[in-house]
């Protein structure tokens, strides 16, 4: 089973790599991610005994092949003789990107200007870049693994990409109807409560710490931030979308583009945790620093 999956993965890896290779004889837009999503979504949607969609499992980004660890990530390759290991990394986005920019609108021009400036100086100004600080909600996006019980859902995140949480992070989201906690400090992950709407888990998040960015392009916010996340299972796909409100700073609610993940196979496991140590910042080049407002 494992070797079949591996061969399949390598085949997909080669297909995906054709996007990246500058030597490719025929530059073809890879449809592998779209095909994977389509095939997975066409499967039946399992439900738990109490009628809710079953969100249990490890969820992989489409077009990202499963590696031999059974976990998704950007394509990587090992040569036939086993001596050359190559990680591929295409900054332009091999899984496809939104065709149009998607930025929040602040309620004052100087706030929009501030976001742009933070984005331009992100190597230095982003709390979660080149550091071990949490990316928080909703910037961390969908979880890598979900564990679901009749009364709560647990989201597990692992460091899979540079901008994911710096290491093992989890969120416990009660779905038993209890209200938000008010006796907890704000945090990067905030306080979450969830409820079901058909095949969608709706998560309401408050008490998100002001120091986070809600998107990686300089999206600062106030303590009035309020996030609603939606996770919808369709077949073997899970689509994550978040809406961010901030009545103090935003002109209107901002929506993330939906991101769809695919259920991993039974061999999948989360990659091991490694320590996170802040060591980059003192060495960052000054030439990208922009003068603060």
């Amino acid at each position: 089973m494992r070797s079949q999956a591996f061969t399949h993965s390598m085949t997909l890896a080669v297909a995906a790599l054709s996007l990246l290779s500058t030597h490719a004889a025929t530059q073809q837009k890879s449809t592998a991610p779209a095909d994977m999503v389509k095939a997975a979504a066409a499967k039946p949607t399992p439900h738990t005994p109490n009628g809710h969609p079953d969100l249990n499992g490890i969820w992989l980004l489409p077009g990202i092949v499963s590696n031999a660890f059974g976990y998704g990530g950007p394509p990587g390759e090992v040569s036939k003789d086993g001596k050359e290991h190559t990680v591929y990394f295409d900054g332009r986005g091999f899984v496809g990107q939104s065709p149009t920019p998607n930025f929040p609108s602040y309620n004052k021009p100087e706030l929009d200007a501030k976001r742009k400036q933070l984005d331009a100086s992100a190597n230095h100004s982003d709390p979660a870049r080149y550091s071990c600080q949490e990316t928080g909600v909703p910037r961390s996006g969908a979880p890598d693994k979900i564990v679901q019980t009749p009364t709560e859902v647990v989201f597990l995140y692992q460091q899979t990409f540079e901008s994911s949480p710096p290491g093992s992070i989890f969120r416990v989201i009660p779905t038993d109807g209890r209200p938000h906690r008010t006796d907890v400090d704000p945090s990067a992950l905030g306080d979450s409560v969830g409820h079901w709407e058909g095949d969608t888990l709706v998560v309401d998040v408050t008490r998100i710490d002001e120091s986070t960015w809600f998107c990686m392009k300089g999206c600062f916010h106030s303590d009035a931030i309020h996030v609603i996340e939606r996770l919808t299972r369709k077949g073997d796909t899970l689509t994550y979308q978040a809406t961010v409100e901030d009545t103090k700073l935003l002109a209107n609610p901002w929506n993330t583009y939906p991101v769809t993940r695919i259920l991993a196979g039974p061999d999948a496991s989360l990659p091991p945790d490694v320590p996170c140590i802040d060591s980059d910042k003192p060495y960052l080049d000054d030439s990208s620093r922009v003068a603060p407002l």
């Binding site: 980004l61 998607n102 996006g141 969908a142 990409f161 540079e162 994911s164 998107c215 583009y257 991101v259």
Partner: peptide
């Protein structure tokens, strides 16, 4: 899909 939940996307 994928466009702009940038952090999950990555590595980018």
């Amino acid at each position: 899909a994928l466009g702009l939940l940038l952090p999950t996307l990555s590595a980018l």
